[in-house]
Each structure stands twice: as C-alpha cells, then as structure tokens.
Amino acid sequence: MSSTWNYIFRRVLYLIPVLLGVCFLIFFLFNVVAGDPTGILLGKHATASQMAELREQLGLNKPLIAQYFDVVKSAFTFDFGRSWATKQQISQMIAQGAIPSLSVTLPGFFLATVVSILLATIVAYFRGKGIDLFIRILTIAMMSISSLVYIMVFQWLFAFELGWFEISGFEYSFPEVMPYITLPIIIWIVLSLGPDTRFYRTLILDEMYQDYVRTARAKGVSEKKILLKHVLRNAMIPIITYTVVQLPFLLLGSILLESFFSIPGLGNMVINALNASDFPVLKAITVLSAVAYIVFTLVQDILYTVVDPRVKLK
C-alpha cells in the first residue's frame, strides 16, 4: 500500500512541471501568436490613448518575465481574477457553468458508455451473425450523419412537434431541470453510440481470440460465462483507458448542444473568451483542464489495480 501512496504522491508532484509547461505554452500563445487584446475589449470606439491605458491596467506593459510569473501564480493559487471582457469573477463563471455542462455530459457519457458496452458485448457474442451485421451497419450509418443534423432534427421533432421536452433553456433545480436536459442527453448518447459500440466491439473481440478463452472453451465453460466473467474483465483495462481520459473534457461541455439548447455551460464560455481575447478565462480553463487531465489519469492508474490485480503501482 505504501508504494501506491508513494506513486500517488509522485504523480501529484508531476503536476508542478506540467503546470509550469502549460503556463509557458498559454503565455507564449497569448503573447506571441495572439495580438493586442485592448482593441477588441474597448469596442468600436477604442482610441490609441485608451488602449494604452488599458494595456497598463491589464499589466501588459510589464516585462515578459513578470507577466509569466503572474500566469504561474494564478495557476498555482487557482486565483484567476476577473474576466477582461465581462469583468465577472472567473471562479464564479466556472462554477456557474460547470453544473449545467456536467448535468448534460455526465449522465450522457455514463449512459452512452453502459449502452455501448452492452451492445458491443451482444454483437461480440453473436459475431458474424445477422444481429452483428445489422448493428455494425447501423452504427456506421449513425456515424455518417453530422451531429448538427441530430440536434436540429431531434429538437424540431421531439421538442417542437411532439412537445415532449422544452425547446431550450435550463433550471438549476431538480426535477425542474429534467425537461431541459433530457433531450440533449439523448442526443449525446445517440452521437456516442456509433463510435463507442464499434470501439468496444473490437476490444471485446480482441480478447475473445486470446489463448485463455480457448483454454476455457476446452474446459467446457459456457460461452456466456466466458464472455461475462473472463473476456469483459480483461477488456476492462482498455475500456478504462478510453473512458477515464474523456472525463476531464466532460467539464467543458458540448459547444453545439449548449448553443442549441441554451444551456449556460462552459462550452460557450470558451468560445466567447476566444472571440473576445479574454486571456484570464482561457488561462483558467486551460490550467483547470490540465489539472483535471492529470488527476483523471491518476484515477485511471488506480482503477487498473482494481480490475487487474497483476498491475502494481510503483
């Protein structure tokens, strides 16, 4: 156990160089690639003198090294200050945006994963048979349609024509939120089913041709038992790899779903920040994403030891 804790401690320490690197990258992109943000921030009547004043206020006239340290400081203290464009507190913006984003992406992701694994297991069980062929064709067909089409058609059909759900909007309380988020969740699942089912089917089929499966069959173990007890368990490592790394990005929501369903999530916040040269917001989102990514890969490593006792964290 102590080696596991050592491992976790070491991985947490990795955060320091990673964050320094992320800070350098975003600082470089903002200061070298992106231009002067003051013109866009001051609007169509910006004057040279007002732009100069704003540059001073935002600290853009400081030496580059001092500006870099400001970025590092905010990344390590998680104090990102206020948005340049909206003047809102960034921590508040993120807190207010994360809940709506996650209320769609988390259940969507969870349900899509469960259903995809279920479908993949069924088609793997019936591999080469009619149902396998049907689901494979169906998933390819589903993947061939643009996500925008799903969103527009589902919104028109289920919310407008049939009136089963609200057309758009969001509520911060349960169960009031349900009519607003159910349709986006369904769309998320539909969008994920195609690629996920195909991916999991391949993983499961890979396992099904392993030596231990042949041995089990030779010993007379039923096909159902082989699939559910042995194959699925061994397929868990790549499944965890695939799913856990996606989790941090769920926080950022889905830009299209949020736009069409007026969900006040983080997806639109990033786009608005990009359009407004809102560096503090972009910085906050990038740093938080990096931290979340590291934390979730750590969770991933720990989960490996749970599903496969042969894996040791050293």
């Binding site: 919104q155 028109w156 909007g169 736009s259 007026s262």
Partner: peptide
Amino acid sequence: VIQPESQPRWL
C-alpha cells in the same frame, strides 16, 4: 432567455 442559435429562437 438567452438563445444563441436561430433554430431554437424560431421554434
């Protein structure tokens, strides 16, 4: 209500 896209606004 804030609706960035035209389809939900129209519907």
